[in-house]
């Protein structure tokens, strides 16, 4: 469950916009400062922990670079909602513990709307408009990983219990 303000982006937001190649050698913290800067220069500066990123069609299209998804984790984004996701980005974001939900009604969300997202139930509450949306919840095996905090904590648990 997360709650925060909506940051709204359009269709086919690609990984070069999320993690520009020019900064690929930088630290995670430095890289995150440039996340989506050419689309919305205020985003990385003003996003606050728990905020929700909303995209349109094919969110995260492009490269396998994990920094594209990791930047949202570094910026402590609470959830990503999009009409559809590119597959490598989708897997990367979940692996970093960021819930990603397919959200057909994405266009009803305006910048700054207050959203509450429950990935386990597949429920999105728009607290600004008072609207509720039901979407497909995350599959059980991914929910288990998200609850652990992502792939690394999940692997730690698995390897600790194996020892």
């Amino acid at each position: 469950m997360s709650e925060g303000n909506a940051w709204v982006f359009g269709d086919e937001i690609n990984t070069d916009l999320m993690a520009p190649g020019l900064y690929m050698k930088s630290s995670n913290e430095e890289m995150a400062k440039h996340c989506l800067e050419s689309v919305n220069p205020d985003f990385a500066k003003n996003v606050t922990p728990g905020d929700v990123v909303v995209g349109g069609h094919n969110f995260g299209v492009g490269s396998a670079r994990e920094q594209a998804a990791l930047n949202f984790g570094t910026l402590k984004v609470g959830a990503i909602l999009a009409e559809s996701f590119a597959r490598i980005f989708y897997r990367n974001a979940l692996n970093f513990g960021i819930p990603c939900l397919f959200f057909p009604d994405y266009a009803t969300i305006k910048p700054g709307h207050r959203l509450r997202v429950d990935a386990a139930l597949g429920r999105i509450d728009n607290l600004t408009t008072g609207t509720q949306h039901t979407v497909d919840p995350l599959p059980a095996h991914l929910l288990e990983m998200i609850r652990a905090g992502g792939l690394m904590p999940h692997l730690k648990k698995r390897f600790a219990s194996a020892k």
Partner: peptide
């Protein structure tokens, strides 16, 4: 193709979902 985070699990376990 997969990201580095997922490839970590692959080289560690030899498996992927």
């Amino acid at each position: 193709g997969f990201g580095g985070i997922e490839m970590t699990a692959v080289v560690l376990t030899g498996e992927i979902w």
